[in-house]
Design a protein around this nucleic acid. Structure first.
Lengths: 348, 348
DNA sequence: GCGATCTATGTAAGCGCTTACATCGGCGGT
DNA sequence: ACCGCCGATGTAAGCGCTTACATAGATCGC
């Protein structure tokens, strides 16, 4: 007869005693119900419920050598884009009884390394990490543990990592092409900090490449790099438009920047897109609601989260899933892009 | 001599063997460094680092009877308001070496109960839960485990739970008063689903109370209840304005709804605030950027998260912290509210 | 110089659970 | 009837770590 200490959660042995079976049977009733006779199973389950017992995860993890925890490492929850990914992953994992551990490294690479180590110590069985511009130790630590992992939100051709995302370079190549095809030749860029952010670097490259194909480039006075915020978008568009020559279009690194640019341009009395074309990226919820609605690229972040989770799940079940094809963000032409106004009337 | 199995993470005994000490010393070097001679401590730490060893959380949790995990239960990450709370909590806990477990119940009460149970099984040492409108089992389960918990985003006077939040009723009373004082008498309301959501119910009560004080009420055709989305805000304002008499102001349950209302009103050719005053709630990032910028109430969700974390931390350290005073959201008068236009000219 | 005291380390007993293996009936086949 | 087999249950050995307690030098007072 085991003594359930009062005021402490019951243990398997308490349930076993109460149900007059062994702890093995209690465990089986929960984990391999088909291996225990129905009558007994019911009795055990009922007793456990009555006592409020559930297998304690730490003990279970130790014995099983499985924690059923996976980790997600993202820059910040303050960006709707990553929040959506996490939400989707969490839902996908929860379905399979897996717990998601979250960490936000705030665009700080050292923090990211630290977080990953903490997660490994917690015994995560798989890891999803946003972006691949991390300290080598980060990936080294993961690989040393031989656990599956996936890089999200980014898909660089030739990356050594499994990726779930899209090709940032190509996406911005597409955007730039859209503007070039409209007839723009002087194009400004407002973008997030490139330091330690592979996605952003790739984006800038994509723009440069598209311009170069037409023999064009980005003039330094037309390039602004800074925190992704509406306010930075505002300041930047003002600064860029003060340059000579002023660009007829600006490509923004994400929708927040583009929203800032749009609002400020309108506040300056410009007509968008007549006087200035503006593009965003991500297609966040608010973008289609603006006036005019923002031309941007739509990225399905829920889908990224779901696919990342599915991929990791497949690995955990022993599969060696095919490397995933990149997602292709789609250009959503809305109201902020148009052909540039001709500088002056053509006719005599 | 212990045999580190290749291809498996090393264990404390492997490190102990390599550093020629006992496992007790290894453990102490990590958890009570001052209890081990500096020379040995360094040797152990160096060996551990070289082998890539860290104490495995599950074993540690079992032996210590502390998991260093706390849980947060929120409706969804898709709302910036909750994402901010979680972000702040996560940061506060991480500083103290505590891991945050997250779960999103999607406004589904059964899901919330289930999530809480899963978290308890994981051994969370404390819990933060958004709102208090949950099944009684939810709080019962928490209390049965004798762990500290806190309700966030809501602070109902007389609630049996520790709360970190504000008084929703009073906040909306304030908003309604603002409009009444401006001279509005016919006021519409667009609000989230009230079912199972104490915050929303309190808000509606606050509005009703303020109106009642002036002998007014909400006409049924002026009240719309539905999902908090920009689109629902749009539809609703259109429906409400079609009523007779049309209200001169609408109070929205949150900023998303208000944004929808504002955009649609403008799309309908109305001038805001001249033809219609609109208020939001939460003061999300975009609200101040709109044109005109949204009058709303500012809630500091990072602060809520931080305070909730601090409160729980204090409990875990054995304190019985004072019940927290409610936060007071502040009314931010921006451009979407003004006195109603007089129906017709007054003169003879 | 000797016992008392103290400090640094080791020994080993769990923490709560799972699971390989042992056990024990009951059943069918001959 | 007896044997072998099979399925249901119990026994007990860990999983990796922490920590109370034991031990063994070192230190100190007198």
């Amino acid at each position: 007869m085991s003594k359930p200490k009062p005021g402490r959660p019951p243990r398997a042995v308490d349930v076993a005693a109460a149900a007059e079976v062994s702890t093995a049977t209690v465990s089986r009733a929960f984990n391999n119900p088909e291996k225990v006779a129905p009558a007994i199973r019911e009795r055990v389950l009922a007793t456990a419920k009555a006592m409020g017992w559930m297998p304690h995860a730490a003990g279970s993890a130790l014995a099983r050598r499985r924690t059923s925890i996976v980790g997600a490492v993202i820059p910040t929850l303050d960006n709707e884009v990553f929040a959506a990914q996490v939400g989707a992953m969490q839902a996908a994992f929860a379905e399979r009884g897996i717990t998601l551990l979250l960490s936000c490294f705030n665009y700080n690479q050292d923090q990211a390394v630290h977080d990953v180590q903490a997660m490994l110590a917690r015994g995560v069985e798989a890891l999803a990490v946003v972006g691949e511009a991390h300290r080598p130790e980060l990936f080294a630590a993961i690989q040393a543990r031989h656990i599956p992992y996936v890089v999200t939100y980014s898909h660089r051709p030739g990356s050594p990592h499994a990726c779930v995302g899209f090709d940032n370079r190509q996406a911005f190549h597409t955007i730039a092409r859209h503007l070039l095809d409209l007839g723009h030749e002087t194009i400004g860029v407002i973008i997030q900090p490139t330091a330690g952010n592979d996605r952003v670097i790739a984006r800038l490259d994509g723009v440069r490449e598209a311009l170069a194909e037409r023999g064009l480039g980005i003039r330094p006075q037309h390039l602004r790099e800074g925190e992704w915020s509406i306010d930075f978008g505002r300041q930047s568009v003002r600064a860029i438009l003060a340059a000579d020559p002023a660009p007829t279009a600006v490509i923004c690194g994400n929708d927040y920047l583009a929203i800032g640019a749009l609002l400020e341009a309108r506040a300056m009395g410009l007509s968008v897109p007549r006087d200035l074309s503006i593009t965003g990226f991500d297609d966040i919820a608010i973008s289609r609601q603006l006036d005019p609605p923002l031309t941007t690229m739509h990225v399905d972040n829920h889908e990224i989260g779901r696919r990342a989770a599915d991929y990791l799940l497949a690995c955990l079940e022993g599969g060696k899933p095919e490397p995933l094809p990149p997602l292709v963000p789609t250009l959503i032409r809305r109201g902020t892009t148009a052909a540039p106004e001709r500088a002056g009337p053509d006719g005599p």
